[in-house]
């Protein structure tokens, strides 16, 4: 590169070298933020003539964060119902147990519902968790209608003055219309007896750009109110979660970081965004 050109580039883009930008681009793409989004944010950062690339990008992506509350809803005069949804293998059942533990530790009376009647032994998996955290669980027959499990659970929760009901559902790929309809029915049936207050979509941190599709379809189908990002304890950065927040305006509420019931933290946006650059 000629001296003049180099000078020109330096003036145009602050003191950050093109190599540095390129490296940053690679890092961000590797975090699953999405190539188009990364290019967009880097162009913006360049035009800001920044001296510190990481700082300016941090500022930019922080502005993408949802301004909605990241706290779990709580109704004081009636039952609060939480529905846990997501594609297969993201960690819905484990997340259900973790949220229940957190609520119990906060002094709430929590009922679980095993509405995953499809996957082999999913009900038993939740039952095992329920025994461990000493909280009751409503179950149904294998392959029975999940909406009926939800109905039984909401009836019991109301009759016995539970403060929270957490309904665990079967994993489903979002492009299976019939399975999405089935989930819609669970919401409708539950709503008739007690409002569903939170629908939390569980997203695996290792998920790539497909996460955005997942979020869009689940939002359309069952009115998702927030996200749980699981398996952030691995090497995945979970950058797609930020892309999802930007696109949907809905907040990440929790982050799963391990196999124990206590391995659930509120979403810490600063730490998360810093993590994207590592």
């Amino acid at each position: 590169m000629s001296l003049f050109k180099r000078l020109f580039t330096a003036i145009r883009s602050g003191s950050v070298s093109p190599d540095e930008w390129e490296q940053l681009r690679g890092t961000l793409i590797s975090s699953d933020l999405g190539a188009n989004l990364v290019d967009e944010v880097i162009e913006q950062a360049k035009s800001m003539k920044a001296d510190d690339a990481v700082l300016s990008i941090t500022k930019l992506v922080s502005s993408w964060l949802s301004d909605k509350s990241r706290a779990l809803k709580k109704e004081h005069d009636r039952l609060t119902t939480i529905l846990i949804v997501g594609v297969n293998g993201t960690g819905k059942t484990t997340s259900t147990a973790k949220i229940a533990t957190k609520l119990i530790n906060d002094g709430n009376k929590v009922l679980l519902a095993a509405a995953d009647t499809f996957r082999a032994a999913a009900t038993e998996q939740l039952q095992t968790w329920a025994e461990r955290i000493k909280t009751p669980v409503v179950t149904g027959e294998a392959n029975s209608d999940p909406a009926s499990v939800a109905f039984n659970a909401v009836t019991k929760a109301k009759a016995e003055d539970f403060q929270y009901l957490i309904i665990d559902t079967a994993g489903r790929l979002h492009n299976k219309q019939d399975l999405m309809d089935e989930l819609g029915k669970v919401v409708r049936v539950t709503n008739k007896h007690s409002q569903v207050d939170e629908v939390l979509l569980v997203i695996d941190a290792t998920t790539g750009q497909n996460g955005i599709n997942q979020a869009k379809v689940f939002i359309d189908a069952v009115g998702v109110t927030g996200f749980i990002i699981t398996k952030l304890d691995g090497s995945a950065k979970g950058g797609v979660a930020l892309a999802i927040e930007k696109q949907t305006g809905l907040p990440i509420k929790f982050v799963g970081t391990g196999e124990g019931v206590l391995d659930l933290s509120p979403f810490d946006s600063t730490a998360y965004i810093q993590g994207l650059f590592n």
């Binding site: 979002h174 941190a205 790539g208 750009q209 691995g234």
Partner: peptide, 28 residues
């Protein structure tokens, strides 16, 4: 997503494998 390579390399180096099986290919 992008973590596939890191993960696959970790399993290859840590345990070793002969072939890959892709699941959930019916998704989009």
């Amino acid at each position: 997503g992008q973590n596939a390579v890191v993960t696959a390399q970790a399993f290859l180096a840590g345990v070793g494998f002969d072939a890959v099986v892709l699941t959930k290919l019916d998704g989009d």
